[in-house]
Design a protein around this nucleic acid. Structure first.
Lengths: 139, 139
DNA sequence: TATTCAACCTACCTTCTTGATATGTTTACA
DNA sequence: TGTAAACATATCAAGAAGGTAGGTTGAATA
C-alpha cells in the first residue's frame, strides 16, 4: 500500500527538517544519511519540489529546504503527493470512474469508511510531531 | 492496497451468504451474478476454500457454501487471507525482516499505528453487518 | 456402471508498477 | 569561467496483478 517512494519521502522530509535549519541541503548528504541511492532519491525529491513541499536551488551551494514549518506538514499530505493517492481501492481515487456495479453496492460504504479511517489517521500526524519523538528516546 | 482479488473475495462471501441458505452454490452462478470471469473467480474461491472460509463440494450438485455463520466472519479475516496481509508497509508483515535501520526509527511508530487503525476498522465489521445494510436501502 | 457436472490443479501469458540506473542539460555561485 | 548542484529524459529488470487454457479428480444421477 505505501511503497518505498512514500516511505523514503517521509524520511527525507524528516531529515531536512532535522538537519536543515533553513539552509539548503544537497541531495548527496541526504542520500548518505538515509542510505538511499542518489539517483532514486533524486526522482523522489523532484516530486516533493514540484508539489511545493520543498524548495530546490540549483548550482553551487544549492540543495533542498522546507517551504513551511514542520508543524504545517501533515504526514497525509506528504504521502498523498508521493503515492498519488491513499485510497485503499481504485474506484475511490479522484478522477477515476466510481464503482457503481449493483453487485458492489454492499461494499462501497465499507471502502469509504476505510478510506476515511486511513486519511484521518495520517492527517492528524504532523512532521513536527514525528520530530518530537526524540524526547521519548533521549530520556 | 486492496486489489480486486480481495474485493472480489468479499463480494463472493456476501453473495454466498445471501443466496446460499446452507446449500452448495456452483461457481458459474456466482460468476454470473457478480460479473467476474469464471476462471479468475476459481482462483479466488480456491484460496477461500483452502483457508477454510468456505466448503467446496465436487461433482454434480456441488459448489461452495459457508463454513460458519455470517456474524462470525470479520471483513479483516477475509481480506487478510486473500490479500496475504493488510500491512501498509512491507516490514510490518509477519515473517519479514522488521525495519531496523536507524534512519527509520522515527517512522516505525507511525506505521504501526496505521496498521492498527486499518486492522481495527476491518475487524469490527462482520459479513452479517454488510448483509444488513439492505435495510437502509429498502426503506 | 456410464455419464455428466462441477471442483480442483498446473501452467502460462500480458500488462503495469516499482525501484532503480545512466546520461545529459541547465542554473547559480565563487 | 569553472564547478557544484538541481533538473530532465530515457531505459531497464523484476515482480505482482489480472486473466486464460487445458486437463484431472470426485460425486451424484440416469
Amino acid at each position: 500500500m505505501i511503497s518505498t517512494r512514500g516511505r523514503y519521502a517521509l524520511r527525507v522530509m524528516i531529515d531536512i527538517a532535522e538537519n536543515g535549519n533553513g539552509k539548503y541541503i544537497p541531495l548527496d548528504e541526504i542520500a548518505k544519511r538515509q542510505d538511499i541511492s542518489e539517483k532514486y532519491l533524486e526522482s523522489i525529491l523532484a516530486i516533493l519540489t514540484r508539489g511545493n513541499l520543498l524548495y530546490g536551488l540549483r548550482g553551487k551551494g544549492g540543495g533542498y529546504k522546507l517551504t513551511k514549518d514542520p508543524k504545517d506538514y501533515t504526514v497525509g499530505s506528504i504521502l498523498r503527493l508521493t503515492e498519488g493517492s491513499l485510497s485503499p481501492v481504485a474506484c475511490l481515487k479522484e478522477g477515476v470512474e466510481p464503482c457503481k456495479k449493483k453487485s458492489e453496492w454492499r461494499t462501497i460504504g465499507l471502502w469509504q469508511g476505510l478510506n476515511k479511517a486511513i486519511n484521518d489517521y495520517l492527517d492528524n500526524i504532523t512532521l513536527a510531531s514525528l520530530l518530537m519523538q526524540e524526547i521519548n528516546y533521549s530520556i
